[in-house]
Design a protein around this nucleic acid. Structure first.
Lengths: 262, 262
DNA sequence: CTTCAGACG
DNA sequence: CGTCTGAAG
């Protein structure tokens, strides 16, 4: 069973670049997308109701901003979309879908950049991280199988971005952001890609659109699938699909034994 | 001597579609453009400083809005750009250029559509018409040669638009707008195109960008070169260059005896 | 339907 | 650098 996460940077734009074809051909059973940047009515029909998938979308209140979506071959038993904090819930960043006993969390973590191209939104970002962690903590402790996938907007370690030195003051690689991600991992979540590829270098999931930098592979690994200890026994592989085009991010995937849901 | 007027609907966009080539190949001695939608620094250099032309640009205060420009093989003796009314002069709509004794007025008359897609800006439009008329009236009476070219945003008569019946409540063909244009003509200005082509039908200078309507020639004649009685003896021909692409308007031209300037 | 600005990333 | 909204035409 393949589970994929992709920040599509506008699902309407990505659809024009072949999202529908990728979805039908990728062999994925569950796909979470981030930065949909549209409400459901605006999404072209072949992607809004794709053959063979159940869909669920959460839009931000602000038009054209944020938003997440979930495509799944089986309809989830339930989906939660709120943390109970108005500022977070207004931005369409979260889906917690349950498939049997497996929880699949699709999340678009906030970008830390503020209006003035400063780091003024970092506190909001960290508060969001903490609120979601708090929401998941009990299940984590109870050994439930949980996968948290999405655009975390944070590179964990120097090896996870091409230019660590130049970016120590850049949101996405600030010490306090890395510390927060560390805390998730210390508390049991596993960075599945790093688990299966402990020595991998130059493996990124996002490249700036400026200067045609993707061709030179000057990127960041900021999209993850984290697995709880209760989920890890089912996780068989993890990968980054760096050759899939259509967005400034590429998909990241895990392969999971189907009995994770039972 | 050929004098041309063209609403370019963004000089940057029009430049990408060949404005520079048209300018060098059109055989025009004076070209007035409207809706430049850029300040001088933003204009690509081959159009900002084209070989063989003097240039003069007037930008609106609001970025990306309105703006007029003048290209001329001879440098004008003087250029005036203001009517002395702050609301008008802030919008970069006017150049009054003198070449010897000939006055060439390049003007982007206001569109009558308001914010809510209503006709709320019609009063402003008519006030602008009146202020410019007042500015030109003395020269008109004194028999000076004056050409007023530009986007008047008004079709004069039913023959000047493809769908007169459907547009009696649309700004651009309102009775009060047509009356104002009538007043200019009653006071001596000559619609040069109509003068040389009294029976012409289906000759338009603007087509809506919606529904690909230009191919069907469902348009409006709202761009004119008006000539004062003092200028008429020099005006030898007038035309509409409907096959010139690059904007939702096309150029309109007059051919004038060169001694109009002496 | 298209231009441009400005927000955001 | 690109995706969107929103104003404007």
């Amino acid at each position: 069973m393949r589970i994929a996460s992709w920040n599509v940077n506008g699902l309407r734009a990505c659809s024009k670049k072949g999202f529908g074809d990728w979805l039908s051909g990728a062999g994925a059973d569950i796909v979470g997308v981030q930065e949909v940047r549209a409400n459901e009515e605006q999404i072209p029909n072949e992607v809004r109701n794709p053959e063979g998938f159940a869909t669920h979308f959460v839009a931000a209140e602000r038009p054209g901003y944020s938003g997440v979506g979930l495509f799944s071959r089986e309809t989830p038993d339930e989906i939660e979309t709120k943390l109970g904090v108005e500022e977070f819930d207004a931005e369409g960043r979260l889906q917690i879908a349950r498939f049997g006993k497996l929880q699949v969390v699709n999340c678009y973590f906030p970008n830390g950049n503020g209006k003035e191209r400063d780091n003024s939104r970092v506190p909001f970002k960290l508060d969001f991280y903490r609120a979601l962690f708090d929401r998941l903590e009990k299940g984590l402790r109870d050994g439930e199988p949980i996968l948290v996938m999405g655009d975390f907007n944070t590179a964990h370690r120097p090896v996870d971005l091409a230019r660590p030195k130049q970016n120590e003051d850049t949101s996405g690689f600030l010490p306090e952001e890395r510390d927060e991600l560390d805390r998730w991992l210390r508390n049991g979540f596993v960075d599945t890609f790093r688990h299966f590829h402990p020595e991998a270098k130059d493996r990124y999931s996002w490249w700036s659109q400026r200067f045609n930098v993707r061709a030179k592979n000057i990127g960041w690994r900021i999209d993850y699938v984290l697995a709880s200890p209760g989920a890890m026994p089912y996780v068989k592989a993890a990968d980054i699909l760096h050759d899939v085009m259509g967005s400034d991010h590429c998909p990241v995937v895990v392969d999971v034994a189907p009995d994770a849901c039972r």
